[in-house]
Design a protein around this nucleic acid. Sequence first.
DNA 1: CTAACATATGAATAACTGTTCATGTGTTCA
DNA 2: TGAACACATGAACAGTTATTCATATGTTAG
Lengths: 119, 119
Amino acid sequence: MESNQPLCCDTTEIHMDLVEQVRSQLPQDEILYDLAELFKIFGDSTRIKILYALLESELCVCDLAKLMEVSQSAVSHQLRVLKGSKLVKFRREGKVLYYSLADDHVLSILNQGMDHLTE
Amino acid sequence: MESNQPLCCDTTEIHMDLVEQVRSQLPQDEILYDLAELFKIFGDSTRIKILYALLESELCVCDLAKLMEVSQSAVSHQLRVLKGSKLVKFRREGKVLYYSLADDHVLSILNQGMDHLTE
DNA sequence: CTAACATATGAATAACTGTTCATGTGTTCA
DNA sequence: TGAACACATGAACAGTTATTCATATGTTAG
């Protein structure tokens, strides 16, 4: 039994040159990490719904809360995340904060995702 | 003190008509949920890295493990997820499974994300 | 058939994430 | 100045997720 545990491809080193070549083409780890962080934002249905709503119109926090039937606090927490990634912006009018999409990359990203689903 | 806790916009109902109109434009909840699930896949740096690697070349599991310096098991688990979302496919050659991207939506989605980061 | 090996997978654990609850902040109006 | 309100935020809790470890599966060579 005495397993000397061949971790993976220990003997053959199947495609070591290819591995090196591909490695040299990869974006830096930090960039990949940031990219994952960005997609993580889209990976929550509450946030997706907020984004789709803002695609239609600028809305205030309580509009969003009503629209989505979740608490004001939950919406506010998520808007904070979206703000942090520069996906939404807001303007103040008295007590009310009106949120809107920061740019139209949001739409592009959402559309690409939809394309993959509906084919 | 006796808070009757005005949940949110209780009195004014600021933009109730607008809320209804926006609601009617939103995709179905189930679609939004599926879309979030898809983006969740992209929201992990291990999986992002796998996808970028496969963008360069078809690779076997242990190539990927070496390339990314993670365990074979971790790669295998993630490939399972990617397979489940039809983002990668594979072909068998003897004992070795070669993975590749399922289609070029993957590239489109990654590129849109990159665009948002690098502007 | 059996040993070797590439890969898959189930269980367990640690880290992370989203919501709720309670409360704080900033603005308006009287 | 103080009450009312829209919104933000910190702490806590529950649910989710990625990795590791151990082991199982499926294929090849002898």
